[in-house]
Structure formats: C-alpha cells, structure tokens
Design a protein around this nucleic acid. Sequence first.
DNA 1: CCATCTTATGCTCACGGAGAGTATAAATGG
DNA 2: CCATTTATACTCTCCGTGAGCATAAGATGG
Lengths: 318, 318
Amino acid sequence: MARSAQKSSASNSGNAITADLVAVLVAVADGEPKIMTIGGGTALPSGPFEFAHRSLQTGLRAWVEAQTGHPLGYVEQLYTFADRGRAGDVKAPHTISISYLGLTREDRVGEGFEAHWSGWYGYFPWEDHRAGVPPMLAKVLTPRLKAWAKSAPSPTLQRERWQRCAINFGLDGRAWNEELVLQRYETLYEASLVPEAVRDNGLTASVVPGTPMTSDHRRILATGIARLRAKIKYRPVVFELMPAEFTLLQLQRSVEALAGRLVHKQNFRRLIEQQELVEETGAIATEAVGRPAKLFRFRHAVLAERAVAGTKLPLSRT
Amino acid sequence: MARSAQKSSASNSGNAITADLVAVLVAVADGEPKIMTIGGGTALPSGPFEFAHRSLQTGLRAWVEAQTGHPLGYVEQLYTFADRGRAGDVKAPHTISISYLGLTREDRVGEGFEAHWSGWYGYFPWEDHRAGVPPMLAKVLTPRLKAWAKSAPSPTLQRERWQRCAINFGLDGRAWNEELVLQRYETLYEASLVPEAVRDNGLTASVVPGTPMTSDHRRILATGIARLRAKIKYRPVVFELMPAEFTLLQLQRSVEALAGRLVHKQNFRRLIEQQELVEETGAIATEAVGRPAKLFRFRHAVLAERAVAGTKLPLSRT
DNA sequence: CCATCTTATGCTCACGGAGAGTATAAATGG
DNA sequence: CCATTTATACTCTCCGTGAGCATAAGATGG
C-alpha cells in the first residue's frame, strides 16, 4: 500500500539489514590500469557503512584514505547491489552493497595493509584490444558462446542468445564496443562460463580464462570499468589518474589502457589541445627514445569554466 | 582495516539499518510529463525493501505493480541516498533510500490508492522551456541567485558561485542545458531558495516558486528527470511512454515534454525514420485539424537488433 | 468553389566535427 | 650519415546535424 514517506521510517523498523561499501579504486601505472584488491586479488576492498559520516560519499572517502593513506581524487557512486546469490550464505543477514568508483594518482599502499594493486585485465582478459582482438576471443569464447546459444530450448531463443553474444562481443562482423563490459560479464555468467556462476549455482563446468572474485565483486568491477570507459569520453576524468606533469603520449597511453583500444595519435592531440584541457609546463620530457616531448599539466580551471562540458576522445571504429 | 569480503557480512552485523525503495514513476499524458505521487503530491511513492524478492529491481517492479495494477515498462536504478538531513529525525533508525526510475504507458491508478499523477513542472517551474525561457527565471531566480553569489565571504568565492549559477541556469549568455536538473536544484537548495533547505536547516527565508516535497524527494525527482532527459538522447526509451500507435508529432511532443524544449520537426522525423525505430501501421490518425498523419508503432525488433545502440534526438541549441 | 489555416512530408544546403592519411621535425644509436 | 623513434603540423574527405524552403493534404469559413 502507498504510504507517505514520513511514516515509512517508522513502519520499516522490522526490516533491518546491513549495508556495505564496496570500492572500485582505479590507478594507472606503467600504462596498465590497476584496481585495488585485497585477499590476494580475490576481492575488492569493502567495509561497513559508517554512520559517523555525513554521507555515503564522504564515508567512502574517509574509509579509503584511512586504509591507503592517500587522498581519493574522484569519487562516483556506481550501483547498489542486493541481487544474486551472495556466496551462498542464505541465512546470513541480508546485505546491500553500495559500490563506488574512485580514481587516484597514487599506486602505493600504506604499510601493513593487505591491499595491493592488480591489473584489471587479469580479471577480464577479453577486454584488452590494444594489441588487436585477443586471440582467446575467437579461440575460446566464441565457440563456448556458440554452444551456449545452441543449447537454448527453442530456435527463437537460440537466435536471440546468439545475437546478444554477437553484439556484446563484436562477433559476426559487428564492431567491438568497449563499453559493454558488464553485459559481457553477465552473458558469460549466464552461460556458466565464469567460476562465479559455477560456484553460485552448484554446477560443474569448464570455464574461460580470467581471475574470479569473491561474491559478486567481479560484477561490480565490470560495472566500474564500464562506467569509467564511458566517462572518459565526455568528462576530463583521465587527468585524475595522471601525475602532475605528463606528455601527451603518456596521456594517450592512459586513455588507451582504460578503453582497451588504441586511438589515432594526431586526432587525440588535436582534441586535447583544441579543448584547452592542458597547458605546457615549459619543461621537456627527459625520456630516452625519439624526439623529446613537451610536458603538460591539466588546466584545473576548465572544471569551473565549462561545467565539465566534455572531453571528447577519439576512439575509432576499426 | 581491510578485510576480505567473506568476513564482512559477519563482522557488520552490528550496523543494522533499514532500506527503502523510492520510485520516480513517469508517464506522459496530454503532452505533459507526470510523476506518480502520494500524500497529495508531497511525496514520491516509497516502501520498504522486501527480501522476498530476488533483486532490488524485481522488488520494485512487484511493489509498483501491486500498487497501481499496471506493469512497469522500463526500470532503472537511479541512486542510493543516505545523505542530507532526512527530515530532522536524528534519532530515528538510519535509512538508506534506493531510488529507481520507472517508465509506464498507463496513467490510471488503481482504485482505493492515494497515489495520483502530478505534472513534474509543478515541482520545477524553471525547467520548462518549451514556450521559451520561463519569465520567472529572469524575474525571480536570477536576482536571488545573484544575491546569493554576492553573499559569499570572499571575492573568489563570489565569482565561483556566480559562474556556477550562470552555467547551471544558462545565464550571462550561456546556453540552457536541460540535463542539469539536479545541479540546479542543489544550487537552489544551497542558496536556501527552496522550502526544503529552509526546513532542514531551521532557517526562515523567502523561497522561489515550485512545490516542495517531503524529505529529499524533490532531489530524487530531480535526479530522475535529469537521468531521463539524458537517456532519451541515446536510448529509445521514449517509446515506453507512448501508446501502441502514435503519430510522429505525438512522439515529438512527448520528447519535448520530457526535455522541456522544442525540437526541429523535420530533423526529428528524419532521425526517427532513418534509425528505423518505427514502422507504419497503415492507419491514419483521425484527429481534427490539418493534414492527417500516418500512425506508427515502435519496432521492438530494434532493441534486439542494435543492442540499444542509440536514439539520437535533435535538441537544438537555440 | 476558393482562400486560408494547419499539419504532414519531401528536399536542399552549409557548417563543423571526426576519422584517416601525408609530411616534416627533433632526438638517439649504430 | 642513416635508421629508428617519437613529436608535431597540415590536409582531405565524409557525414551528422541544424536550419530553411517548398509542397501536399486535409478542414473551415465565406
């Protein structure tokens, strides 16, 4: 029945649950995107929601900074999960996971913590298209997905399944869409091709490469990667992952690392410069090979100036 | 301290809270966007999270359908709120509001329920630019915002405040951006120009037009409107709000109602048709004035075909 | 029947952004 | 000096998009 909102907090008091924060903390080091993990890379950092804090956002920020000793540059709420078999403990108190995406420049972790940084493509080997389409996509994923599609009960369902696979994984001559990270993971889960699905549903099946995670953390990670890949195209968030000074090539490599695909160098520079996102520091990079590059820094002014209007990045279709 | 996720559900058990679902249910009737409200239009429908359901999404769906007797077309999670003074009841159990956006064709409400549909521009009069910039923007909002900016402690802060207002409200010759619904509401809240801010902070101040809501429901509504305005530009969700058959003008009017601004008719038709989003039914609209229009229906096939690739809508800059 | 009004529908044009390629510059190591 | 690598400057083409013009097909009132 519909009730007014004022009454609801009183009438709910029987439905006590617990809320967890789960963080997808991203950094880029050596041209590789990394995420902070615990438990030897099997889980994302998570913790109880602290009511001492004014909001969820500040709660997460304080908690992460206490753990790593570093400030969090950019924080954004991802999604609130309560679905799925959460590791099979049906009798445990119900938990809601409120997940966040956080970007940071630092990749060091404070002493004495079990957290460390893991490359995110270890969890999603099929997502890295920087060196072309990964061979495992055609060799491993495609046949498994095809078999899954064929196993559907009706011809119509078979076609629908296969169409979905083709769209998500860029098969049948379709273009690869780097933003469909979550859709791909969920398809693999549904097809019981990831260990989590096998675990949650008590099956035994052969799975595809890619490190699994506790609970639904890999799903949360996929959500975070997808969000970030979408975001870098229209918001200047890449800079949160860069050191104070950088060359345009370093910036490009970071974007490519996140997007999992290469960009056209000249167009990338044109876009960055015409949007006045960066300014020269005057210094020159000291690296070894090739013509030395100018160093740039992010023009923080643009954040105020243009209301985060847009950072367009050229992610080509080939 | 970092703990593995497996341990967390056990170690959290002291932090019990309650979770509410809050729904922004949208329909379009007579060319006006409406939202479902309760409490005489002062609150969004909300209810406790039921653990009988498999997921949050299905929980909301079941709950809404039980209330209204109508299926929910499209459902999407919006945001999870725990911030802000929730109506001043500091000692009440802490509540998290998980908000959802739902789209439906129906605008009838089942008998015996207190819910009904309210036009959303009653809550945000400054958001409707279909008949040009609303006079109240220049007459009421701008002077108040200017005063608020000037009241900042330092000249730098004054400039920052004003720049933010100018960007959000399209002042100083800037273009109106219909997607900044939430930013606008939050600015007004911060400037104590909405009753909710006055209420939450125990102030007395004169406020601007626009119906207030319980708790932070107007903020949640702003989040929903913003999300929907962004979404209609790249996903074919408008059709969820349309009857089975419609003319292109009706479709256009719905888009304009949601976006709060007019679109170029010929370009709109071109876009809709070239994307093959609709097909002719063969019938002709029976309305009165003008040349009769063909009736169209949504091609549901495109959802599968193109993986929600994109529905671009021409929202011009003038 | 004609003038007029309203909406539907077809077509053209100009501009700008994006993808892609060519060419040249500046460094290093043999 | 040459090969190699990276930096940087231009150019060209295509297409999406905003905008306007023109015509068609109904209704209504004189």
